[in-house]
């Protein structure tokens, strides 16, 4: 009986997720807006990134592959 009520509860809770549907490719208009990006200004972000990895002496620290020569 306990298992049954557990199952019933799981079904009840999980079915709450049913109306959530993945965003379709053609519904991404709002996501494509500039204000939806994580970073702010593109140029400012590039500048910050450059300063960051120069100061940290870690070329490629921002996600770009580097040879490790420290020549940034």
């Amino acid at each position: 009986m306990k298992a049954c009520s557990g199952l019933a509860l799981a079904v009840l809770v999980l079915s709450g997720c049913a109306p959530i549907k993945p965003v379709q490719p053609w519904e991404k208009g709002f996501l494509a807006k500039k204000e939806m990006t994580f970073a702010g200004d593109k140029l400012d972000e590039a500048y910050r990134e450059h300063t960051y990895f120069s100061k940290e002496a870690a070329a490629g620290g921002g996600g770009v592959g580097g040879g490790g020569c420290g020549c940034n």
């Binding site: 199952l7 079904v11 999980l14 079915s15 997720c17 049913a18």
Partner: peptide
């Protein structure tokens, strides 16, 4: 019953 609910959802 579980299968039905999962299918429906």
């Amino acid at each position: 019953a579980v299968a039905l609910v999962l299918l429906a959802s």
